[in-house]
Design a protein around this nucleic acid. Structure first.
Lengths: 337, 337
DNA sequence: TTGTATGCGTTATCAT
DNA sequence: ATGATAACGCATACAA
């Protein structure tokens, strides 16, 4: 900036004024300065300004895995919201490790991001002393965090979602339903399991709930399905607890295609192409990311209200997979021959 | 930091030394300083350091759409590489618009990112004067950019990939093959189209090449397939040019399932679950992102060598969809009855 | 309308 | 081993 000033024979302050579109500069002076800026290709660096005014116009996002569709949609939504406010987004993966999470949070705080959206890796208060001390506004997403002080949180309606799945299957006449959940380490997986069990109870379905928590592979799914379908009271439908379960499950489900109905928690690309087209519980990760970012920006804009928790609704997208299976035509032919 | 210094009865410089683990501090002094730091919960802010040493330890990534699996895998890989070097990653979507791309690039440059990985929206030299002037190292990814000066570029072997797809189909006896490409606005789509045509020519396959460029919807795919399968010399196989084409195409391909083989460019989740399991040309977005980031860090670490272009190989993952279709059993039964 | 002095938090230089 | 001071690039307050 000093270079520009020298070149245009004005003071740095005048250049600053021009760059920031401040009033009080004679048009021709401004023009001259702009000319030089254009010629040299100058851009104001925010580092100085940041230092001076203590704001970086950058927010941070911490997720488990950027490559996971669920998180990538969240990430895209948060970035979009940030762009609306002319903010930039720094993204970091914690890879499910609380340790790594702490370390990336420290990095983010050191960079003095103005705010944070965090999908907490563990439930232990990520409310790291570092973050607390920095007084950086934080919005938690997808999972709550235990904390003495209330914190802004955006959740999905896991209980309602799983309930809609069970009710859908029951409406189709299913009475014996299995639940394939993700690892019990994951809060949402536990929530859905509990929701599943609670719904069965509320609906007074007979028998003990059939639950197989993950992490799952095609093999573990096959084992569970074999067990569930071979007893005296075989399951006729299963619910997969999230996409990480649905993907390996779909392979195995094929083998039971003629007997088992299913509902998948989380929509997925090609959900309408697989056979049968998958009925899914759709939670809108884009909406979740957007809501979290909006709440964060409300804070950044001065909202001092009490911490809030938002629970976003899920939507059951009905396709074919929830309906009772009929023996496929070729199978019938084979057995008839 | 000054507070710490006062509290510990040392100079700021000494505190700085302790914080940065610089040598030349007496152990007991260091210990005392650390104690105070611990007590007041101090964290060095990078803004001052950035200002002083002109480095942000942050790199920027510009892609089209963070939610697109291709880009989200790239993004995850770049972020991972950044983390290895203890850098942070700022991601921004250009949404395919050169205008927006310029604007996000300006934002990134203003933040003084130390380097950039850019998936260019257009082919017009994104080599924006702003970026040039900032002398920020840039690595282009997935698509080249026309520029007077050579620039580091990481590409995928589009020609080789499409060739492997065609050859695979030809090896399975197909002679009449259609190509469903993405919008011709996209460089990679054009590359693959050209590669397709060139391969047909090299293999001396008869007839004019059948090409339908996008953007595609299930309808446009259906129209093309209807046309191609209804003539005197019907196609027996199609190639989809990328995932944005494969997804809508899969819906329509179902209707032709008994006649058409296919190979999809780009692997996709569930590629082995769809029926028939999809043979795909796999370009490894994670490897691409990693390579680009590695090249960028090489530059950041002082590599002054001439600009390089890397062309990463693709891999044909053979599943079932490339083999000639036989009438499915149930269809045969029906026609026999 | 324009310019000068000062400070933001940190590190580098050069003392002591 | 430690400290005083300048400097980084910009914006704020104030002066001219």
């Amino acid at each position: 900036m000093a270079d520009i000033a020298a070149e245009a024979h004005v003071s740095v302050k005048t250049v600053s004024r021009v760059v920031n579109h401040e009033p009080g500069v004679r048009p021709d002076t401004a023009e001259r300065v702009r000319g030089v800026i254009e010629r040299v290709g100058f851009r104001r660096g925010d580092s100085g300004a940041t230092l001076r005014q203590g704001r970086t116009f950058t927010i941070g996002l911490v997720v488990e895995d950027l490559a996971d569709p669920f998180y990538s949609h969240i990430s895209a939504a948060v970035e979009r919201e940030a762009r609306i406010h002319r903010y930039l987004l720094v993204t970091a993966s914690a890879e499910g490790s609380p340790t790594r999470e702490r370390s990336v949070l420290k990095g983010l705080v050191a960079r003095r991001v103005d705010g944070l959206v965090v999908v907490p890796a563990g439930e232990t208060p990520v409310a790291d002393p570092t973050v607390i001390a920095s007084r950086t506004p934080v919005v938690y997403l997808d999972r709550p965090v235990r904390s003495e002080t209330a914190v802004d949180t955006v959740l999905s309606d896991n209980l309602g979602g799983i309930r809609s799945a069970v009710e859908h299957l029951v409406a189709h006449g299913h009475r014996r339903i299995g639940f394939l959940g993700d690892s019990p380490d994951v809060w949402t997986a536990r929530q859905r399991r509990e929701g599943f069990v609670a719904t069965l109870r509320d609906l007074r379905l007979p028998g003990t709930p059939l639950v197989a928590m993950g992490p799952h592979t095609p093999e573990t799914v096959r084992t569970a399905l074999t067990r569930w379908t071979s007893g005296a009271d075989p399951v006729t439908a299963v619910i997969t607890g999230n996409t990480r379960v649905t993907i390996p499950a779909l392979t195995s489900l094929h083998a039971w295609a003629t007997q088992l109905s299913f509902v998948a928690y989380d929509d997925f690309e090609l959900s309408d192409v697989v056979e049968p087209a998958a009925t899914v519980v759709h939670q809108d990760p884009a909406a979740m990311g957007q809501k979290a970012a909006q709440q964060l920006f409300a804070r950044l804009l001065g909202d001092e209200g009490p911490a809030q928790t938002f629970v976003l609704p899920t939507r059951l997208i009905v396709r074919a997979s929830g309906a009772p299976r009929r023996p496929a035509r070729d199978v019938r032919n084979v057995s008839a021959s």
